[in-house]
Design a protein around this nucleic acid. Structure first.
Lengths: 131, 131
DNA sequence: GGACACTAGATGCATGCGCATTCAATGTCC
DNA sequence: GGACATTGAATGCGCATGCATCTAGTGTCC
């Protein structure tokens, strides 16, 4: 039953890689652009999906964040002027979130930092379990 | 320059795997054994290294937790009776952390939950970047 | 059309975290 | 040996998170 050992080893490796990258990412994004990882992720999603949908819902769906965390993150981004909320006329409970031009700018800048950190701290193939 | 795309894709995959497993782990450990992931990790480390060293230091070293977070986590574990602190005579600033028998029991029980969650939510080879 | 279930998002609350600081114990240098 | 830097751990503080709850807008069923 060595599969258990393999499982644990795999998880350990995953944990290590994740924490290594995440901590550096968090720090770098914060220091250089005043963004948390989650906030950057949100901007990133918004850049990717330019087509409009019921954003809050969608964002929460494919991000790992809880609905409440997302709501507050968007509030922060809005307060910083990187994003704006708009009512959805079709369903007035829904809220559209869109990038402002400043948000786009910030994302573009942050993207470089993001890539740089990945390049230096994410060893590709690092958590491959095959020998 | 497709290496950038590969890098990002790899990171995404890592993020997804991590969050998938971590969220289930956190929930399962909490519900079944009243332990957070970090707390379980600490017990796990203690089981592994039975030889005595300056624990707080060591633990913080190979765990991703900050020193303060570790200090509090150990405090919680001590309060729950799973762990005990002992002064280090050689260097009276140091603190040894050791498992109590109850801590060992709890860990043994939690280990099963841990493995079960890994087995069902950690797909081995999931974040292999080769095609 | 009025009562009731449901859904989208916001918010109160408790908690765990990291950073900076503090405090005690050790080293070090003259 | 006494002043000063350094180290191990604890703690004050602010913040992001998840859970539960609340509010408001939509269906739905009679």
């Amino acid at each position: 039953m060595t599969s258990q050992a393999a499982l644990i080893e795999h998880w350990r490796s995953l944990l290590t890689s994740y924490n290594e990258v995440a901590s550096h990412l968090e720090r770098a994004l914060q220091e250089t652009h005043g963004l948390s990882m989650s906030e950057f992720e949100i901007l990133d999603r918004l850049v990717a999906q330019q087509c409009e949908k019921r954003r809050m819902q969608d964002l929460a769906a494919d991000m790992y964040l809880s609905q409440s965390a997302l709501s507050r993150a968007v509030a922060r981004l809005e307060k910083s002027g990187l994003v704006s909320r708009a009512l959805c006329e079709a369903d007035r409970r829904g809220v559209f979130v869109t990038l402002t031009s400043e948000g786009l700018q910030r994302h573009t800048a942050a993207r470089e930092t993001h890539l740089a950190v990945l390049a230096s701290h994410l060893q590709v193939g690092g958590q491959d379990t095959r020998r």
